[in-house]
């Protein structure tokens, strides 16, 4: 099953590599990983999407917690949460397809952030499944390149 973990870690050199090294070294998988500073610049928040049985997720959480640089680990997919991913897509934008690209972007509430004579760069934000849906629809029209951020997530009701 898919789990979204939120990990607070000390913002120190090498801290991220301790986390990723743990996953590769112990054979756990990372589907996506997103990390940036929190309100406290000494602390980073890392959102990590992984898959595994309950026993494996429990092991992942315990092993993460064991890392000295890790402050807190929570499996936010245990409760209600919101998740977002952003994707930048460079579309072929030629005479015949420009209008259609714009229509699709509009349906998904995306926006064009850069324009060239032959391409549009569009930005779309949403759940991971929405991002996948947009890509599936745009692919036949002509995607030149995509860059995804990976999922970030936040629990809806902070746990006490």
């Amino acid at each position: 099953m898919k789990h979204t973990l939120s990990v607070l870690l000390r913002n120190k050199p090498g801290a991220l590599s301790r986390v990723t090294g743990l996953f590769s070294g112990r054979g756990f998988n990372i589907e996506s990983l997103c990390v940036a500073e929190t309100l406290d610049p000494q602390v980073s928040c890392l959102t990590l999407v992984t898959r595994g049985s309950d026993a494996i997720i429990e092991q992942i959480m315990k092993q993460l917690h064991k890392l000295i640089d890790v402050i807190k680990v929570s499996d936010i997919s245990e409760g209600e949460y919101v998740e977002r991913e952003m994707v930048l897509i460079r579309m072929k934008a030629e005479a015949g397809t420009r209008a259609e690209v714009l229509r699709v972007i509009d349906i998904f509430r995306g926006k064009v952030v850069d324009v060239s004579p032959t391409s549009y760069t569009v930005e779309i934000t949403g759940s991971e499944s929405k991002v996948r849906a947009v890509i599936d629809i745009l692919r036949p029209i002509g995607i030149k390149e995509i860059v995804r951020t990976g999922t970030i997530a936040m629990a809806r009701v902070p746990k006490k």
Binding site: A55, E58, Q59, K62, Q63, H65, K66
Partner: peptide, 8 residues
Amino acid sequence: IDPSSISK
């Protein structure tokens, strides 16, 4: 003493 040893 190591929680990660439990049920590993």
